[in-house]
Design a binder for these strands. Structure first.
Length: 396
DNA sequence: TCTGGGGTCCTAGGACCC
DNA sequence: TCTGGGGTCCTAGGACCC
């Protein structure tokens, strides 16, 4: 769901010259491109990254290169389906530590030019170019070209950039010309460039909202813009209805968020075969205990304390269920976490075969006694790989 | 042939307190 | 005996994103 609170009816539809200039930068087929860096022999072949790197493993496609996309393969698709569409593809397992490494490299390259960066995950960022470009789009285009070059010099990887007056439009813009593109969408271009696009191009309109919009014959962003806001409020509720209307008109006042505190951390795993809650209790309990260990280690490494522990189960029919408990006091020790997790498991009382189990810590706060005492963790620092983290912990 | 793992935010009911 | 709003916390579920 989109962040509704931060996009109230806005005034930036009438933003004068010298308004904001926001860039959205998206790495092209990031995981697949990283893999190709040391497998140049695969450049012209369809490459699919996902799961354990086997076409028949339980899992989904994490990324595929553009060659594989020609066969209809998409990220999020079950590996087995991808194997059907493109049997000749080369399958590779995901290697997150390597992607995190390249993620740090490309973000550092951008930061060398402009440090007003919002981290949006491993392969994309927003950059506020307003100050550095004096609010001038032509100037911003020159800077964007420099940024793309700096990213390439640092990683040998290409990216696509969208330039726009706000994050919502910039995000759509970066997708207009992929790979290795640079697109500019100004306010006056909304009607010609955005309105013809399907509503799903808007970040925050997902499959469910798409289906509901289709029911009232709304397919394009332009059709959404033409729909009275009252109709949207009736169908989608006050918040989301208003947000949909603003989005269709390209209105979005959200600021770039340079710092963010972590809200939750979780560890989950899908089994190779489904487990029965009673017949396979021993195996299940072992897996939960192991996830608790990983979670506790993760929290300690980052000097985080948790106030709530939760367990998630996914049944063989894909229905899922969560249970959580508040802890008496914030902590990150394994004993308390494990005790709470098993309490949740007992509350859940699973009644059919299970395909996934997860343990989650939420209500996080920094450990002021053992930690750095800072409430603000630079978002980029979240992407430290395990060895680097272990090394850091030793310093304390 | 089913459908990963890691997140964020929103909604909503009930408890509890003032 | 009946009964106000408001605020916050806890819990469960769901949509959406990378």
């Amino acid at each position: 769901m989109a962040n509704l609170s931060s996009s109230e009816p806005s005034t930036d539809a009438v933003m004068p010259a010298g308004g904001r200039v926001i860039a959205h930068l998206d790495m092209d087929a990031f995981y697949a491109s990283v893999e190709l860096l040391d497998r140049p022999d695969l450049v012209d072949k369809p490459v699919i990254v996902g799961g354990r790197g086997e076409p028949n493993s339980r899992g989904v496609v994490t990324t595929c290169n553009y060659k594989a996309r020609e066969f209809g393969v998409r990220s999020g698709m079950p590996m087995r389906k991808a194997a059907e569409l493109c049997p000749a593809a080369v399958y590779l397992p995901v290697n997150f530590d390597r992607y995190r490494h390249y993620s740090r490299l490309f973000k550092a390259a951008i930061a060398g030019i402009c440090d007003r960066i919002e981290d949006r995950g491993i392969d994309e960022v927003y950059i506020d170019l307003t100050a550095i470009s004096n609010g001038n789009f032509e100037e911003a285009q020159t800077i964007a070209i420099q940024i793309k070059q700096a990213v390439f010099d640092a990683t040998q990887l290409t990216c696509s950039v969208g330039l726009a007056p706000n994050k919502l439009i910039a995000k759509i813009a970066s997708d207009l010309d992929k790979p290795n593109g640079l697109s500019l969408v100004k306010h006056e271009d909304i009607e010609t460039m955005l309105w013809p696009l399907p509503v799903k191009k808007v970040n925050g309109i997902g499959p469910k909202a798409c289906d509901k919009l289709a029911l009232i014959n709304i397919w394009s962003i332009g059709e959404l813009a033409a729909t009275p806001v009252q109709v949207l409020i009736e169908r989608f509720g006050s918040n989301y209805g208003r947000w949909l209307n603003n989005a269709a008109w390209g209105r979005d006042q959200r600021e770039i968020e340079i710092y963010s505190d972590p809200k939750s951390v979780s560890k989950e795993t899908t089994f190779e075969r489904d487990l029965h809650p009673r017949a396979d209790w021993h195996a299940l309990a072992e897996i939960v205990a192991d996830l608790c260990e990983q979670l506790a280690a993760h929290l300690s490494r980052r000097t985080l304390l948790t106030r709530t522990i939760g367990v998630k189960l996914r049944y063989d029919n894909f229905a899922s269920l969560t249970r959580d408990v508040a802890l008496r006091e914030p902590c990150n020790d394994l004993i308390s976490i494990r005790k709470a997790a098993f309490e949740c498991l007992a509350k859940a009382n699973p009644h059919r075969k299970i395909r996934l189990v997860g343990v989650k810590a939420s209500g996080l706060e920094f450990d002021r006694v053992h930690g750095r005492g800072s409430l603000h963790l630079r978002a980029a620092e979240n992407e430290i790989d395990d060895e680097a983290q272990a090394a850091q912990v030793k310093l304390f």
